[in-house]
Design a protein around this nucleic acid. Structure first.
Length: 565
RNA sequence: UGGGGCGUAGCCAAGCGGUAAGGCAGCGGACUUUGGAUCCGCCAUCCGUAGGUUCGAAUCCUACCGCCCCAGCCA
């Protein structure tokens, strides 16, 4: 559930400026955008940027945004991806209403338009093989040479194209090409392929077709059919814009959409290439597409990131045309910001060590009232059982503490959150010298966590009654790739995988109320971080994923070797 | 040595001829029953470089440098 306390300030960027001007100056009455995924994989956080842009603009300017599947290549596309994409867009918080479309809905119209270009002498059937076409295309610095089939008669082209559709030819035997300019410095103008033969069943049209339009021949016309006003895509399509416009100008389309390009998202410590993500899954480096370390929206969701955090992030990074790599800390900040306001606080002990309170009665259990969220009074309080034997975090005790270690140590008094002040008297160790028990006394006057005499402690610890704590598995997640720019400098991406990206702790404890937290809800384990139940949880065997740690200045000091500074 | 883009702080990013917003990160400090959160302060004499125009340039002009994209019957 999302709560809106800090709506991201409506950001202005060059695309929103264009939309605003077009509306102001009457070029359009309402803005219509579209998010056009190809259903050949799972959506990732890069797509989230585009989704937030397209749906965001529609929302802000009172227009609408279509969800359109760009399903022109049945070789790669599957219904499974269509379903997951719709789930992910909805989860992100956007609604396309009844405006769900498929490029495949337009196949018949596109075919008619192809015929139109043939009749105009602006398209022809080419018998060249793929290799031959490539050879004829020329290079970046040399013009191409025309295909020997370039000047076929309109009648012959019509006949051949009709037979292509009828299935008379093998895959790759012929293609339909636009007849533009084999010498153009823009390679996209060197007679681009409009249709190819693919004897492959399509997830939506089945085997109704064996010729399929290319992206270039489908995208702009689909935009025109839907009345898209601003067709927003990423930078690598810039060189296609003249071709996009060429088809629109040369076809009797019902509207004139325009394409605008922005820089795609890059994030440190992660990779957003479909090829690499697929390899991570196929080679078993992760637990599948929805692994909590994956940058996929399904992975991010399983990790416990709230959709609102992603939307805020999209607003923070802006939209521009300069290639950039956003530090993942920005995403983490956006997520922490939401979670800090919304997440319920709970107690969990990841690396337990026993505390025995020597002057606390053996058979007593108290139910301490604990605040659910200090940032949100309406979240109320809960009750946590307290008794003589407790679990605390092993890290929260040091026998010989450095100067800046404020937690428990021999002779030192600290507060157990919402419970009592305790003072360590001594420790018990096993034969290997490992601490097995920390013996303490408590001050009955400090119930709730305050001393009537006003004395202070320097630390507050989380704790769990050993008799009541629920065993749990906790999976600690960190960046999938160790270096900020994996694979840069020609290094092998997979060498860069962070071996610590998932650390499974099998023997943790959580407070009893955590048994009721549903998958999808992220809570804060006080002083540790944000965690959420994983779908792998079983009755009586909960599994929690660490979404993010809390910021930790002590850990930072340790990392810097400044504990004694 | 073709074409298309882009260069403002460690990162993202405003700025559109009148003298460098904001956020992230970082650093100090205050406060704190989460070493969390919050709060306060610091962090670009300078906008890829060099010239030019102008009373005045990150914004205009010229040249140069650097980076990205394009030679799929992928999108």
């Amino acid at each position: 559930m999302d709560t809106q306390t800090t709506p991201p300030s409506p950001r202005s960027d060059f695309i929103r400026d264009i939309v605003a001007a077009d509306l102001r100056e009457g070029r359009h009455e309402t803005v219509v955008t579209r998010f056009p995924p190809e259903p050949n994989g799972y959506l990732h956080i890069g797509h989230a940027k585009s989704i937030c842009l397209n749906f965001g603009i529609a929302d802000e300017f009172g227009g609408r945004c279509h969800l359109r599947f760009d399903d022109t290549n049945p070789v790669k596309e599957e219904q499974e991806y269509i379903d997951s994409i719709m789930t992910d867009v909805r989860w992100l918080g956007f609604d396309w209403g009844e405006h769900l479309y498929y490029a495949s809905d337009y196949f018949e119209q596109l075919y008619e338009w192809a015929l139109h270009l043939i009749r105009e002498g602006k398209a022809y059937v080419d018998d060249l093989s793929a290799e031959e076409i490539r050879a004829h295309r020329g290079t970046l610095t040399e013009p191409g040479t025309p295909s020997p089939w370039r000047d076929r008669s309109v009648e012959e082209n019509l006949d051949l194209f009709d037979r292509m559709r009828a299935g008379e030819f093998e895959n790759g035997a012929r293609v339909l090409r636009a007849k533009i300019d084999m010498a153009s410095p823009n390679i996209n103008f060197r007679d681009p392929v409009m249709y190819r033969i693919l004897h492959v069943a399509h997830p939506r049209t089945g085997d109704a077709w064996c010729i399929y339009p290319s992206y270039d021949f489908a995208h702009g016309q689909s935009d025109a059919i839907e009345g898209i006003t601003h067709s927003i895509c990423t930078l690598e399509f810039q060189d296609h814009r003249p071709l996009y416009d060429w088809f629109i100008e040369n076809l009797p389309v019902p509207a004139v959409p325009h394409q605008y390009e922005f820089a795609r998202l890059n994030l440190t410590h992660t990779v957003l290439s479909k090829r690499v993500l697929l390899k991570l899954v196929n080679e078993g480096h992760v637990r599948g597409w929805s692994d909590p370390r994956m940058p996929t929206l399904s992975g991010i969701r399983r990790r416990g990131f709230p959709a609102e955090g992603l939307r805020d992030f999209a607003g923070m990074i802006g939209v521009a045309r300069a290639d950039s790599v956003v530090e993942i800390e920005m995403l983490e900040h956006a997520v922490r910001d939401v979670l800090n306001r919304t997440a319920l606080r709970r107690f969990g002990v990841l690396d337990p060590v026993k505390v025995v309170i020597e002057n606390y009665p053996e058979d007593t259990v108290e139910h301490m009232e604990v605040v659910n969220n200090p940032e949100d009074e309406s979240a109320g309080t809960r009750t946590v059982p307290f008794a003589r034997e407790l679990w605390i975090e092993r890290d929260d005790f040091m026998e010989d503490p450095p100067k800046k270690f404020f937690r428990l140590a021999p002779g030192r008094e600290v507060r157990l959150r919402s419970a009592y002040f305790i003072t360590c008297t001594h420790v018990v160790k096993d034969a290997d010298g490992r601490i097995t028990e920390i013996r303490c006394t408590y001050d009955p006057e400090t119930r709730g966590g305050n001393a009537p005499d006003g004395r202070k402690v320097k630390a507050t610890l989380h704790w769990l009654s050993a008799a009541h704590a629920v065993p749990a598995e906790v999976r600690l997640y960190d960046h999938l790739f160790a270096s900020p720019n994996p694979g840069s400098g020609g290094s092998d991406l997979f060498e860069d995988l962070n071996p610590q990206s998932e650390v499974v702790l099998a023997s943790c404890f959580v407070e009893p109320s955590l048994a009721e937290v549903p998958v999808g809800q992220t809570v804060q384990f006080e002083r540790l971080g944000y965690f959420c139940p994983d779908p792998d949880s079983a009755p009586g065997a909960p599994v929690f994923n660490r979404t993010l740690t809390l910021k930790d200045t002590w850990a930072k000091l340790q990392a810097q070797g400044r504990q004694d500074a």
